[in-house]
Amino acid sequence: MWEYSDKVREHFFNPRNSGPLEDANGIGDVGSIQCGDALRLMLKVNADTGVIEDAHFQTFGCGSAIASSSALTEIVKGMTLDEALKVSNQNIADYLDGLPPEKMHCSVMGREALQAAIANYRGEEWSDDHEEGALICKCFAVDAAMIEDVVKANDLHTVEEVTFYTKAGGGCAACHEGVEEILAKVKAGRAGPGEVSPPPLCPATPEALRPPATKLTLVQKIKKIEAVLDFVRPMLQRDHGDVELADVQGKKIYVTLKGACSGCMMEAATLGGIQQKMIETLGELVQVLPISHMPVEA
């Protein structure tokens, strides 16, 4: 079991400020049921002074997620919004006398909820490029997505280089096999043709793939999405794969990869390439996800 500090246990067993806040004027919802963590932060902000007068939370999650939420509400109460925006996830973890490395994401979720709630109060659109992969290095809490990004961005080739850039693998060394796998995957992506690299941009972009001037209706949007899939399909078919639209839910586009693409280790790169094209075509930020990520109906 996890080694939680007494402070974490105390905040879990006796959470502060839990439950709905009736007159909240800033609400931030973050997290996902898929990952097993979701947090709603509710703030009551004094419009004249900009001071957070009250803060409540509702959390679906483990012990440290609930404790982090509780700590967050205690930290921000009495702060001005500008002060609150400076609260980092490390502040939340410190407040609780530390969190196990595998649980640091709970404090990250707290900070994000805070940003989202403040954006909501100010009437701003809040979006996050939050992307979390499997935790590879448990000593320094570095996940797969982070390692992959750094490897790509800096053209890294060895475990030592990865450790130098990310700290991953610098502790007990148990994760070196995992780091090597990511290096091999990125290497394959660098060399590989067709489906493994994002589809190259066609110089003469067909009309259907041009970004729209006005907001799209759902039907228009789906037509655009299909156009993108038709555009990338020949490249996938060259590698004996295929792709099909499964569903569109808000900013999430679920697709089914078929044939050779199904279960291909370059699935993430393929989806990344399609996603980039979707974003260009739709003119908005969307996520392209495999159908296995679609929430299952109860």
């Binding site: 997290g31 898929q34 963590d37 979006s127 992307e131 499997a134 797969a144």
Partner: peptide, 17 residues
């Protein structure tokens, strides 16, 4: 599903292993 719709839906990528 809709009462609680987070700002992002955390793309927890499938673990590699």
């Amino acid at each position: 599903g809709t009462a609680f719709a987070p700002g992002y839906a955390g793309s927890c990528f499938p673990p590699l292993i």
